[in-house]
Amino acid sequence: MSTEIFESAADAILKGDSDKAVETAKKGLGEGLDPVMLINEGFIPGINKVGDMFGSGKLFLPELILAAAAMQNATDIINEAIPEGEGQSRGRFLIGTVEGDVHDIGKTIVVSLMKANGFEVMDLGRDVSTDRFIEAADKFNADIIGTSALLTTTMEGQRRLEVELKKAGLKERFKTMVGGAPVTQRWAKRIGADAFAENASEAVKLAKALLETA
């Protein structure tokens, strides 16, 4: 029976069907399934598949948004069933496009997938100054600061953030993740960022890994 529910959960996410996702979550809990298992073996594989399909052009942004919303609705119900202190919030993720850069399409996709995977997300938008990143991360109590840059000239904003975090003695408090078309693993290493994500699905995997090792 649990297999059937897991499949139904994944299918609901894949179809972006919020009603079905909620119904499946309630049904699973009603049948006594472990809430954590219900998320990890039912809904998460569904949203992972959505990410993979988006990454290969088999599914598009509106469907991804619907899937993310269905995921959010289902996990809200399941989280209520998880005893205090054992909730499934993956962590707090702050994101923005660096100063001087007004590109935000890629960032939008990252935001959706992060939310769908249980992260609390604060999106600062585009053209965000280094000071604003740090100030907002402090207030939001972020676990990870993600920065996006689409130009070789604005990538410097990612380096500036690392420098300013170190100066302020905050580098150990926040993990940093960089992305954007011209950004590479080597760039991340050179500036001292904790991770580089090639795409939105990768960003989710890396964010999870960063917080597991934190």
Binding site: S56, G57, F60, L61, P62, E63, I105
Partner: peptide
């Protein structure tokens, strides 16, 4: 390599 489906339809 593929047209990004920001609209989808």
């Amino acid at each position: 390599e593929f047209v990004l489906g920001m609209h989808g339809e």
